[in-house]
Design a protein around this nucleic acid. Structure first.
Length: 279
DNA sequence: CGGCCCCTGACG
DNA sequence: CGTCAGGGGCCG
């Protein structure tokens, strides 16, 4: 469910609520959500630790502890993190509760239970979560048209798939790949090896533009975030194509089309994104 | 690469 | 009832 803009929002909302808090105890109700090392070890190691920072990398969050230990998490499709007063009613499917020394709790809930946590001791290398296989952050200055052309320029795979490839660019998912391609006026199914340098350039500039736009649109206060159960802050009204199939294109008014690319649903405007300009 | 897996819930 | 969902991993 959440992509880079949502993860960034979660980080911004939760960091001030977690920073400098100490984890008194924690409860893991579903051991399978702890991918490394084990649920028992996860609880034992984290109890008593003080939180000093939260970082985002792609769609991952890493919580840094004063000791130098850390834990990394990925929310996958339906994962949700909330900081709540300890007497706040619990969400269904709450799998981990961190009891903090400031009267609050960090709660992880996840309907589909795809989300995962990994714990690492100070100095231990994370070769488990997949965070080490991520490509460039979308706002990295090294993300240039040359970088993408080198990586994908001779490949036939669609540019939609290129955007979803976390080992090339980290953080773009199915919603924002559609939004970025719409903004860049490029057909999602275009094979990467047919793009000219100007088109790569356009794609690059729209990647950061669209993601920054949605990070801003998603901004919420901690109160609003909690009120919306960590879900409702997502500003679907601002999406221009995703979820709007069979509705008119916001630019030209033609009906948007829906298709499937690499097993993922994909919405685009055949006119604005240039159906006629060569597949 | 496609296909199937992990899960629950919403919707047709 | 079947299909689909914004995640990723694994398998042949």
């Amino acid at each position: 469910m959440p992509e880079l803009p949502e993860i960034e929002t979660i980080k911004r909302v939760l960091l001030p609520q977690m920073k400098d808090a100490t984890i008194k105890t924690l409860t893991v109700k579903r051991p399978e959500v702890i991918a490394y090392p084990t649920a028992g070890e996860f609880c034992k190691r984290l109890a008593g630790q003080k939180i000093c920072d939260v970082n985002r990398r792609g769609k991952f969050l890493t919580v840094l502890l004063e000791s130098g230990d850390s834990f990394t998490l990925h929310l996958r499709m339906t994962g949700c993190l909330l900081v709540t007063p300890s007497d706040y009613p619990a969400e269904k499917h709450t799998h981990i509760v961190f009891e903090l020394d400031n009267g609050n709790e960090i709660r992880f809930s996840d309907t589909r239970r795809f989300g995962r946590f990994w714990f690492f001791q100070n100095g231990e290398t994370d070769s488990y979560s997949g965070i080490d296989k991520l490509g460039l952050e979308p706002f990295d200055r090294r993300l240039t048209s040359e970088y993408l052309k080198d990586r994908f320029g001779t490949r036939r795979k669609s540019i939609k798939e290129c955007l979803l490839d976390q080992s090339a660019i980290a953080g773009i998912g199915n919603i924002y790949s559609d939004e970025i391609l719409f903004a860049a006026k490029l057909l999602p199914k275009r094979p990467a090896n047919t793009l000219i340098i100007d088109e790569w350039q356009r794609l690059i500039s729209k990647i950061s533009e669209v993601l920054i736009y949605f990070i801003e649109k998603n901004a919420v206060t901690p109160e609003e975030y909690l009120q919306g159960k960590g879900q409702e802050y997502r500003n679907t009204p601002f999406l221009r194509v995703y979820g709007n199939d069979d509705k008119p294109c916001p630019i030209c008014g033609e009906l948007l089309c829906k298709t499937v690319i690499a097993g993922r649903s994909c919405v685009y405007c055949p006119t604005c994104q240039g159906e006629t300009e060569g597949i």
